[in-house]
Amino acid sequence: MVQLEDIIRARGRIMNIAKKTPIIKSHQLSDRVGAQVFLKSEHLQTTGSFKIRGATNRVMQAKEEGARLVTAASSGNHGQAVAYIANQLDIPATIVVPTDANESKVNAIREYHGAIDYCGTTSAERIPRAITLAEELNGVFIPPYDHPDIIAGQGTVGLEILEQIENVDTVIVPVGGGGLSSGVLTAIKEKKPNIRVVGVEPELGHDTKISLEKGEVTSVSGTDQTIADGLRTTQPGDLTFPILQKYMDDLVLVSEDDIRYAMSFVMERMKQLIEPSSATTVAAAMFEKINLSHENVVCIISGGNVDLSKLDHLLVKTVE
Rank of each mutant, 00 (worst) to 15 (best):
M1L: 14
I8G: 04
N16W: 13
K19A: 08
T21Q: 05
S26V: 09
S26K: 12
H27S: 15
V33P: 01
V37H: 06
K40G: 03
K40Y: 08
K40W: 10
E42R: 05
L44R: 04
L44I: 08
T46M: 13
T47R: 09
T47G: 12
A55C: 10
A55V: 09
T56D: 07
M60Y: 12
Q61H: 08
Q61T: 12
E64I: 06
A73W: 01
G79L: 08
A81H: 09
A81K: 08
V82P: 11
A83M: 11
I85E: 09
T94Q: 12
I95Y: 05
T99C: 14
T99S: 15
D100V: 15
D100H: 15
A101C: 15
A101I: 14
K105F: 11
E111M: 11
Y112A: 13
G120A: 05
I127D: 03
P128K: 05
A130P: 00
A130F: 00
I131K: 14
L133S: 02
E135G: 05
P144M: 10
P148M: 11
A152V: 10
A152C: 11
L162F: 02
E163Y: 03
D169A: 00
I172F: 01
I172D: 04
V184M: 01
T186V: 12
K191D: 09
K191T: 15
V197F: 02
V197G: 03
K209Q: 14
I210Y: 02
K214I: 08
E216C: 09
S221P: 00
Q225W: 02
T226C: 10
T226P: 10
A228V: 13
D229Q: 00
D238A: 14
T240Q: 07
P242M: 10
K246S: 12
M248A: 15
D250P: 06
D250I: 10
L251R: 08
L253Y: 03
V254P: 09
D257K: 13
I259V: 14
R260E: 01
M263Y: 02
S264W: 05
F265S: 06
V266P: 04
M267D: 12
K271A: 06
T280G: 10
A284L: 14
F287L: 11
H294Y: 07
V297F: 11
N305I: 03
L311D: 06
L314K: 07
V316P: 04
K317W: 00
K317C: 02
K317I: 03
T318P: 00
E320A: 13
